[in-house]
């Protein structure tokens, strides 16, 4: 499902965290869209997401989907960045899942997300790691 073409066209968001800022209401959209869901505006300026944020909620996946069976247990979080944008990411470098908590400060780091998909592509993107670690 995650073909080379799909991986390629998502580079700007996955690799460089490129978002779009609505010129009407300043809402930041990640990923970018053609229309702002907040105000209906259709013009945007490019915006790069900040890397600092905090955990809004999280879980640890013990029963993985196809493609992630080598990565369990897999900690995942909904992270809110410093500019209010929220995104779903894996949490990296977790030695003890018991230490994860809501509100935990994190920083986004460029990491390998999954590999050996049907097309043999390695997928990269950002993971959250505990800030200061």
């Amino acid at each position: 499902m995650f073909s080379p073409a799909r991986a390629w066209r998502e580079y700007p968001q996955r690799y460089r965290l490129e978002a779009a800022k609505c010129t009407e209401c300043s809402k930041i959209l990640y990923p970018p869209r053609l229309v702002c869901p907040a105000c209906g505006g259709r013009t945007f300026t490019p915006e790069i997401l900040p890397r600092e944020g905090k955990v809004v909620t999280f879980t640890v996946i013990r029963v993985p989907p196809a493609g992630f069976t080598e990565q369990t247990p897999l900690p995942l979080a909904l992270v809110e960045l410093a500019n209010g944008v929220r995104l779903m990411v894996q949490i990296g470098d977790v030695e003890n899942p018991e230490t994860l908590e809501i509100g935990m400060p994190v920083r986004l780091e460029f990491r390998r997300i999954s590999w050996d998909g049907e097309a043999g592509v390695i997928f990269y993107g950002h993971k959250a790691v505990r800030a200061g670690s």
């Binding site: 996946i61 909904l78 995104l87 997300i113």
Partner: peptide, 21 residues
């Protein structure tokens, strides 16, 4: 699929996040 599934999230995972909230 692109902005949640890509990272390996499952349905129990999404509801677990809601449960925690």
């Amino acid at each position: 699929a692109e902005w949640e599934g890509f990272h390996g999230v499952t349905f129990p995972g999404l509801y677990a996040m809601l449960a925690r909230i």
